[in-house]
C-alpha cells in the first residue's frame, strides 16, 4: 500500500502551485483555473486523511461528493460573471473589476 504521506505531499505541491497561480494572474479565468487546482489539492488531502480511519472513510467520501457538486455550481457562476465582464469591459482583467458596479 502507498503511504498516506505521499498523497498529502502531492496535495501540498498542488496547493502551493494553485496559490502561485492565484497570486500572479490577473485574468479572471486564469484565476478560476488556479482556484480549481487548489480545489483538487483539497479534495485529495481530504480523501487521504479520511481514508486513515474506517469510521471516517465513508462520511469523508460523501462530503467530497457534495463538494464536487458545489464546485460545478461555482464554476458556472464565475464563468458567467467572466462572460458578463467581457461583454461590458472587453477585458478579463480583475484590476478593472472594481469599476464594475450595478
Amino acid at each position: 500500500m502507498i503511504d498516506i504521506y505521499l498523497y498529502l505531499m502531492v496535495s501540498a505541491v498542488l496547493f502551493a502551485l494553485g496559490t502561485y497561480g492565484l497570486m500572479t494572474r490577473r485574468n479572471i479565468i486564469r484565476m478560476l483555473l488556479s482556484a480549481e487546482v487548489i480545489f483538487n489539492a483539497a479534495l485529495l488531502a481530504f480523501l487521504a486523511l479520511s481514508s486513515v480511519s474506517s469510521s471516517l472513510a465513508a462520511p469523508g467520501g460523501a462530503l467530497v461528493i457534495i463538494a464536487i457538486s458545489l464546485s460545478a455550481a461555482e464554476v458556472g457562476v464565475i464563468v458567467s460573471i467572466a462572460i458578463l465582464m467581457f461583454r461590458k469591459k472587453e477585458s478579463l482583467d480583475v484590476y478593472e473589476l472594481s469599476e464594475f458596479k450595478g
Binding site: D3, I4, F15
Partner: peptide, 23 residues
Amino acid sequence: ALALLSILLLYVFSGYVGMTSSY
C-alpha cells in the same frame, strides 16, 4: 509563497508518515 507553503504543508502532514489506506 509557493516554496513556503509547500514546506509548511509538508511539515503539517509529516504526522501521517507510515500510515496507509486500507479501506
